[in-house]
Amino acid sequence: MDKKQQLFNLAGLAKRAGKTITGEELVTKAIQNGRVKLIFLANDAASNLTKKMIDKSKFYEVVVCQTFSESELSQAIGQHRKVVGIADDGFVKKMESLMTE
């Protein structure tokens, strides 16, 4: 199984475990509150959303993963979303290790 598929599966698992925060406003708040350490941002999201999320993430030292398109990300979590925050250290560690391998 390739890294992208493993990340895809982990995103779905995190969603089912209740460890995700979805939607632009909620994810932005979660970044500011330090509740998320990693976000998935659709690689085909609008440029203003992409800029906003990347700027926020840089400032608060949150990892941004742009591996998936909006449709792939939505499919992974079973909800139509452009941005998904991961609010669990265990999931974040595993996802980061997959992204850096």
Rank of each mutant, 00 (worst) to 15 (best):
L13H: 08
A14P: 12
V83T: 07
D2N: 15
G12M: 05
T50R: 15
V63C: 03
M99H: 03
A45F: 00
I54P: 04
T22M: 10
Y60M: 05
K82P: 06
L98T: 07
Y60R: 06
I86G: 04
E25Q: 13
S74V: 00
L10D: 03
I21F: 06
R81L: 02
G90P: 07
V62R: 01
V62F: 02
E96S: 12
N48C: 07
Q5R: 14
T20H: 01
K93R: 15
K58W: 04
S71H: 13
Q5P: 02
D2R: 10
N9T: 09
C65T: 00
F40Y: 12
L49T: 09
L41W: 04
T28Q: 10
A46C: 05
L49C: 06
Q66K: 12
G85K: 02
K52W: 06
K51I: 02
G78D: 03
R16T: 11
C65F: 04
T20L: 00
N48A: 15
E24H: 09
L7D: 01
N9L: 13
T50F: 13
N33H: 11
Q32H: 09
L73R: 08
K15C: 10
A11R: 04
V92I: 15
D55K: 11
V27W: 07
E61T: 07
M99N: 06
A11D: 04
S97C: 08
S47N: 11
L73M: 05
Q6L: 15
Q6S: 12
Q5L: 14
R35N: 14
E101Y: 14
L7I: 09
E24L: 13
A76Y: 03
A30F: 02
Q5M: 11
C65D: 14
